[in-house]
Computed example of a mutant assay.
Amino acid sequence: MVPVRQTISVVTGCFNEVENLPEFYRRIRAVLLEYPEFDYEFIVADNCSTDGSRELLRKMAAADPRFRVILNAANFGHIRSPFNALLHARGDVALYICSDLQEPPELLGRFIQEWKNGAEVVCAVKSASQENPVMFAIRRFYYRLIGYFSDVPQLQDFTGFGLYGRRFLEALRLYHEPYPYFRGLVAEIGFRRVEVPFVQERRKHGRTKNNFFSLYDMAMTGFVNHTKLPLRLAVFCGFALAGVSLLVALGYFIYKLCYWDTFQLGLAPLVIGLFFFSAVQLIFIGIIGEYIGAIWTQVKNKPLAIEEEKINFDE
């Protein structure tokens, strides 16, 4: 009886990466050729690229029937679209990687060895980065902050780059998340996990698609999905500030009674107190708004992506 060959799924998202895609495909395939006992499939989800990436993906799919392409009907963002592509993976194990080449494809060989040794999840964690050192330091601070406050122990310096076994992929389907925080789900789902350090490379071509708002969106998604601490801090601070306000008011009242003719309250304390408490209220209203926004996203239950066309998929 001929044994059934196992399949490795390589899953990535794409938005205006026409300069990186050929090298990405070549480097991944070079590693796969070192493991002839495995079959493979590529799954690339394109988010309505405008730089010629779609035309290139069509040519690559025509040349390789195992190169599968999902062309989205619109840009569904760098969170939803790659996650939707991952759910299409049919392999025994899936490599989840960005197509911008900042995550070295050559680590796939190390991932496969760890998976063969029994790890269901192999996570690549950034030990260092060639990116802007200020941004790298901010990211590290965020990872440690959410790791400290999260209800589930989080992976430090983990971007989602890694190898995931079939049992993990099936467990992932049980989470009906319209706007998933994948890094948190990896920590929450569990299974035997191995961490592999790597150095994040500098982007060779193109520009990053992340800006302040997209990074803030991802950061707050992680917080509201995995901890209620900001809401509880709002309550605790509210009680504390109310107590301080009461003591200050009581102190002013007693001082006024003792020095009725000479003590005048003045306008400055009133103005400072007014603006201080107004700022605190706005901050906490914003925190509550983030959680309400997350609830709103869940209630709407939008699909992860609308697919305009799928190439080389045998439905």
Score class of each variant (00 low, 15 high):
Asn20Leu: 13
Val4Thr: 14
Met220Ile: 15
Glu55Ser: 14
Arg140His: 09
Ala30Glu: 02
Ile8Ala: 10
Arg54Val: 14
Phe284Arg: 05
Arg26His: 13
Val10Met: 10
Leu270Lys: 08
Ala294Cys: 08
Ile146Arg: 00
Gly190His: 04
Ser99Pro: 05
Gly165Glu: 01
His78Ile: 12
Lys204Gly: 07
Phe111Ile: 01
Leu282Arg: 15
Ala74Gly: 11
Ile306Ala: 11
Leu246Met: 13
Glu120Asp: 13
Leu169Lys: 04
Ile272Ala: 04
Thr227Lys: 06
Val122Gly: 02
Ile272Asn: 00
Leu246Ser: 13
Ile79Lys: 02
Thr227Cys: 08
Leu174Ile: 06
Ala94Val: 02
Ser49Tyr: 00
Asp46His: 00
Val121Asp: 03
Phe198His: 07
Ala63Ile: 05
Ala234Thr: 11
Leu87Arg: 15
Arg167Ala: 14
Ala119His: 03
Val134Asp: 05
Gln113Tyr: 09
Leu95Tyr: 05
Asp64Thr: 07
Ala45His: 05
Gly273Arg: 04
Glu106Cys: 02
Tyr259Gln: 06
Val280Lys: 06
Phe213Ser: 12
Phe239His: 12
Ile287Ser: 02
Leu247His: 06
Ala305Cys: 12
Glu195Ala: 12
Ala240Tyr: 15
Ile272Trp: 11
Ala187Phe: 06
Gly52Arg: 14
Ala234Leu: 07
Phe136Cys: 09
Arg192Thr: 12
Val299Gln: 11
Arg54His: 00
Ala305Leu: 10
Ile43Gly: 00
Gly289Cys: 09
Arg5Met: 15
Leu231Pro: 06
Lys204Ser: 11
Cys237Ile: 15
Ser129Tyr: 01
Leu57Arg: 05
Phe236Leu: 15
Arg202Ser: 15
Ala187His: 01
Phe277Gln: 14
Glu131Met: 03
Ile79Asp: 01
Leu267Cys: 03
Ser9Trp: 00
Val11Ser: 09
Ala124Ile: 01
Pro303Glu: 09
Leu145Pro: 03
Val235Ser: 10
Glu195Gly: 08
Gly147Ser: 14
Arg90Ile: 05
Leu304Ala: 09
Val93Pro: 08
